[in-house]
Amino acid sequence: MYLAKIYVTYKPSILDPQGEVIKAALKRMDYVGIEQVAQGKYFEVKLNAKDVDAATAEVESFTDALLINQNTETYRFDLSLVPDEVDV
């Protein structure tokens, strides 16, 4: 079984008001070095696939179809092989 760790963020051109609010708060807390804060989404998806290529294609397909809105969001992901879950 594969584990996909998927990181979704706004495209750089998109205003991220929540990131901006967090940045302003960090500055008020005297973290003077803060340059930029981007708030995104993180998903962990476990899936069965015959090999790493099939798993990659599957992750790309469902991420484009549902997890992101391609108007404004982009993503990257890490894929790893994990032990199958055993029903107890």
């Binding site: 998109i14 205003l15 008001p17 929540q18 609010v21 809105n69 108007n71 404004t72």
Partner: peptide
């Protein structure tokens, strides 16, 4: 918009 029946997307308000 999510269904693609109208173009664009509704984002969180500029002032959250």
């Amino acid at each position: 918009t999510e269904a693609g029946l109208l173009p664009g997307q509704l984002l969180p308000n500029a002032t959250p």
